[in-house]
Design a protein around this nucleic acid. Sequence first.
DNA 1: CGAGCCGTTGAGGGGATTCAAGCTCAGTGG
DNA 2: CCACTGAGCTTGAATCCCCTCAACGGCTCG
Lengths: 255, 255
Amino acid sequence: MLMPRTILLKLAPTQTEACRGCGVRDAALFGALSERGLERLHEAGDGMGGAGGISSVHLPADRRLYALGAQGAAVFTVREGLVRLERVSAAGRRCIVRLAGPGDLLGAEALLGERYTDDAVACTDLALCRIPVPVLELLRKDEPALQLALMRRWQQALDAALTWRIDLQAGPASQRVLRLFAQLSRQAAPGEPIWLPRREELADLLDMAMETASRAVSALRRDGVIELMPGGRRARLDAGALARALAKSNGTPNH
Amino acid sequence: MLMPRTILLKLAPTQTEACRGCGVRDAALFGALSERGLERLHEAGDGMGGAGGISSVHLPADRRLYALGAQGAAVFTVREGLVRLERVSAAGRRCIVRLAGPGDLLGAEALLGERYTDDAVACTDLALCRIPVPVLELLRKDEPALQLALMRRWQQALDAALTWRIDLQAGPASQRVLRLFAQLSRQAAPGEPIWLPRREELADLLDMAMETASRAVSALRRDGVIELMPGGRRARLDAGALARALAKSNGTPNH
DNA sequence: CGAGCCGTTGAGGGGATTCAAGCTCAGTGG
DNA sequence: CCACTGAGCTTGAATCCCCTCAACGGCTCG
């Protein structure tokens, strides 16, 4: 039970500037805020005695951002990297219930005063914004746009969770792996190598045995769909071959 | 593609009374409303030219409440009965992604101006409240409690979806059936018979073949866990035997 | 009564899990 | 420098669960 050694950077008054120029701002929660709201956001943080400001968090891969059951004091926006949310099933199996990438919001349940409902673990090195609940709470009341953005995010998360379940938990193992890679490549820069999960992680993501995941990846490698890169954590996809493989496996409506 | 022949009952000015005395009000969305808010709720409906009031909807089993992709004009609160939300997976398989019972909110995505993300179909005869989006929208702005209740409901739906996925989609078929029944009995009146899904529905709920569902039910019947009641849609559970069966299947951490 | 729907049960085959054994590779220390 | 080690990955073989195809029984309804 290591405490994650998070690195907190409190960014001075110029945080407003940082936010304004943030690469993911349009995609992220505060994209909804007016200029005035953005300023108030940081005033609010300053006005709370310095304890409550927005801060930048960096976290190395495989470290935990927060733990299931912990009383949440903040929500997070992902700026860079990939986070996995995991829980343990009634049968004692670990399951990854969601992947969050740049622009996504984590730990929204903290806004309701609830405990975190999952473990949040870094898949890759992370850059996040940490937003204390009171700060967001303060603004929520009189920034209707933020209110709407919050609801929209919740709905997105719900929809993503359902789609995930439908597409990545059903069908033969090879197909599930294929679809996961397709999704990973979609949210990565085109042409760039994708994050290749460790086999154990693949198993937890797709609800299969580790060996099955390994076999599936090996098969895709043999078929030229994927090319492993040194280090074992990244891979290059052949978009054409992937599309072909997906079409073929969809042809057999299997399962 | 039948249009659901819904039965709309516009309840006169006394709707305020009806709401105040509603059996599920505490559990439902408007449990958060103040007395004053409750009154405004119905004034709002009246003030919109009669087209926009809250109404009571009754729907027989197997009828569709709304369709995936339809532009939603209302959200619904379940008063009595069970609703299933279903979609079709990329592989063309129908999946039930959620069950909603008394007190639950349906079609919240309509509040964001989005189309419904699933088909909503009655599992049993239903009694619902239909709440037009503009009515709710009007109140949302200056009833902070309602705002909060909405967010809480979204979070609940998200959590339920994830728990569902974890507990009801993983593990051996017999265990999944067992867990579903346990959950159904939990949200039914104790001692009362539970709703027994048709085998096809069980299959869609638990992501298995219809025959597998049938075999699992038969096995449970042989073991005395469940007793089918005439009509085929209801069954009585032996809580003790169920708990024992669950414990036993959990003993083998299988899968 | 035959048609049709729903549920049950059997037989066969395939895909996934499980158990188990190597394999690669980085880090470590002799 | 190189065996040693351990973690992660791969692969094989046996088994089992579940899907598929198929036949049959009960029930309702035209």
